[in-house]
Structures are given as C-alpha cells and as structure tokens.
Design a protein around this nucleic acid. Structure first.
Lengths: 235, 235
DNA sequence: AAGTGGTCTAGACCACTGA
DNA sequence: CAGTGGTCTAGACCACTTG
C-alpha cells in the first residue's frame, strides 16, 4: 500500500540508502532479500526489486544472481568533471576563423593525411577586460560542405562537430596538462613567458573512431582551475 | 515472446538505441510510445516501458508524463575522469609520515582551528628510477586515534580518510591547476625550476561538509596528463 | 475523451547458489 | 531442496496532456 506522496518503490530505495549511509550496512554486506522487502512493505516482489534496482543504478549496491544484493565500496577514483567553456560570467571573442594547412602537432593529433586542410578557430575568453584563457579549435575541412561562419562562431567544439553529422555518433576525449604558453598565447593572455598554464586538449571522435575535431585551451591558473567531484553524494 | 539469449526488454532498448545512434531519431524527437512498443514486440506495457527506462538511465532520452519519451542532446560538458594514483606501471615510495602544525595554506584548505595539528604523508611516484610525481596528503589528527602507519602507507587518500569513519559518509572534490613546483618539489622530481607542473588538489569531505583530508599532487607533464571522456559511448 | 506515461498486484516460470 | 534473483503477463487504476 502506498499512502505517501511518493511511489512505494522510491520509499524502499530511500530507506535502504539511509541504512547504508548511516552505516547499518557496510561494503560487502548483503542487503535484505527481495522476498523480505516485499513482506516488510506489504507489496510484491516486483516493487521491492524496483527499490533495490535504484540503488544498483546509483552504483551503491551490486547483485549476484542466486545470492543477493551486496553493498559496494565507493568509487573514489572515478570523478565527474564539468567543463564549462561558455560560462555566463565570462565573455569570449573570436579572433580568427580560417582554413589552414595543419601544423605537425595538429596533423598528429587528428591523424590527418598530408594534403588534408583544417579549419582553425581561435577564441579568447575574457573576465571583464582581462583575458583569462584562449583556445584553438581545429576541424576537418570537407570541401563539399561550405563553412558557415555564424553557425560555428557561437557554438562549442562538440556542437560544431556534431553539426557535421549525427550528434550521437561522437564522443569527446580530454587530456589535461600544464605548459608554458607559446609566444602568441603569452601575448594574447598578457602573462609572463614563464607562467605555467593549465592546458586542456580535446579530441572529437566520430563513431568510426576518426578524430574530426581537436582543440587546445590555455587557462591562467587564477581563473582556470578545473573542478571535479567523486563519491556517492554526487549524481 | 523472447526466443533470444537476452531478455526482451534488453532487445527493445538495443533496437531503440541503434535507431537513435543511426540518426533515425534526433534530439527533440519523440520515441515510439509504450503502447506502440508493447504491440510491436507482442509484449506488455511493463516490459516495453522497461526498455525505454534503460535509455532514460543512460541519459539518452527523457520522459514527459502524458506526452512521451524525448531524445536528448548529448552532454558534452560532463566528463568522466579516472584518477589512478596507484597505477601498476608506477611504484611509489613514502618518504615521510609525521604530525605537524599545518601551514597557512593547509589551514585554509581544511578550515582548521589554530591549534589543530595534522598528519602529513609525503610520497614520490617513480617510473622506473625516474621520479614523475610527488604528493602531500594532510589528514586531521585526532588525539584519541593512534596513527597506524602500516594502514596508511599503502592506501590512497580517500581510503585512509574512510578508515576513520563510515566509507559512505564522504565525498571527494578535486581541483586541477598548473604551478611551478616549490623548491622541495623541484628537488624531489629533479626537474627545472621553471618547469610547469600539473597539480591536483583533493579535498576529502565528510557528511557534515567538514574537510577531513587534503592532498596535493604534482605531476611532470610528460607523465602526468589526466584523461577524461564524454558522450554516450562511455558508461 | 483518447492517448500518453506511472504504479502496482498476483501469480507464473526460469536460472543460479548452497547446504 | 529451499532460497535467492530475473523475466514476464494481464489487467487494474491513477495522473498528465491534448484536442
């Protein structure tokens, strides 16, 4: 019976989650069985199981057919990172959109043939008047598809790449490193030549594992810290 | 009817997922209704709905009560980052475990009172003979609990902190930046004073939002790139 | 009113585990 | 064998959306 505002299976999940968070169940422990829960909550096995499934989806418990549901240890090495290049508090200016011959670095990153040209988009991100970051994006240039500047200018890297195909056919990979800025970066950001910059490299990859986009973003450390969280509480 | 090796609801989910990935459905489109699917697959609404729920859990579609299931746009700003400080190809050496008065930086990071002492654990990570990273971990020091060195030495930061309470009561936050190493870091890593290092700051936070652990890791850029992925294909 | 999704039941049958 | 989880049915009733 369900006389609350929330479905019964949700109540079951909440109760169990609290038990785990309070330490009544610890990693390795077996949760109450589906039958037990069905009895306790005066419901059917289907509904009881649905409650357990929620915790399973949350990565808190795991199931072993024929044995039961086990409490897992938290995954502290798996982080969720939100990468917002288009934050509202910043404004950005596009300084260059052009078709170029790729440098050897870009050629290597995108696995390009020798004669393949790429689109280069440069952008500078400002906090008020102060430049805090700048990035370079490279996209494969298909002769057949004319370059629509407006569409590209205000979109983020993945969206631009997605516009050239199915938006679901791609994934993004990111690497994070520290570098000294190249001369034009130092000049654009107005920082010292020896200032360490946080650099993110992004690869846009289609369903055939071809790199169709590559981007590099340099951030000054006062403004460009990346944040990520881990644990159960964040989902 | 289900004459395959996999449950019917799974087949339904797979079929729908492929349709989306192939571009038969695009972001904003409405998926076939529960009733339609039940008819098509000669099953009940419950099973049909279960298929849709899978895609919903994967973040591919979203539901609007009374209207239907909608295809979502991929979330390219949300990354999953795996942070493996205990990689198998590296070995690490603990150089120091001690109880100290915190520096002002640590005091600020952990929101400590003036007289609170902390445990400091220093570690250096080697690739063969070459030092590639080093880190400092700070934990609140509770006078009541004696410091068990063995337990701490081989564990990672969150596990150590977890050992002091319920493992579920905590979360980890991470910041990533670029810095020049302090003198002792430069010496330990044997790098140039001007070499930019990738730095990760980690905060271990308990359920009362108190910072119970703080760690800093310096990585040389050739070895210390962090990687993260985004999109649907990764889950 | 007709169509959508959401919850729940009572019961069936199957597969896996362990004593 | 009893107990565990997993799948599925047929049908009921509810809540939301749209015309």
């Amino acid at each position: 019976m369900n006389n609350a505002f929330q479905p019964l299976y949700y109540t079951i999940a909440e109760d169990l989650r609290h038990s785990i968070l309070e330490g009544k169940f610890n990693p390795g422990d077996i949760m109450p069985s589906v039958n037990e829960l069905a009895l306790k909550y005066k419901t059917t096995r289907v509904t009881a199981r649905k409650g357990l499934s929620i915790l399973e989806n949350e990565g808190i418990i795991s199931v072993w057919h024929g044995k039961g549901y086990y409490v897992l240890s938290p995954e502290f090495n798996k982080f969720t990172l939100y990468y917002n290049t288009n934050s509202k508090s910043f404004n950005s200016k596009f300084s260059k959109v052009s078709v170029i011959r790729p440098t050897s670095e870009v050629k290597a990153a995108m696995l390009l043939k020798d004669d393949q040209k790429v689109i280069l988009i440069r952008r500078t991100v400002f906090d008020g008047d102060k430049p805090v970051a700048c990035d370079e994006k490279y996209l494969t240039y298909d002769k057949g598809r004319p370059l629509v500047e407006e569409e590209i200018k205000y979109a983020d890297l993945p969206e631009v790449a997605a516009a050239k195909g199915s938006p679901f056919a791609i994934r993004t990979e990111m690497e994070i490193g520290a570098e000294l800025g190249a001369p034009h970066v130092v000049e654009t950001l107005g920082c010292a030549a020896g200032e360490p910059l946080l650099v993110t490299y992004r690869y846009i990859i289609d369903q055939k594992d071809a790199v169709i986009g590559y981007g590099k973003m340099y951030m000054r450390r006062e403004y460009g810290k990346l944040k990520a969280i881990s644990g159960y509480n964040c989902r």
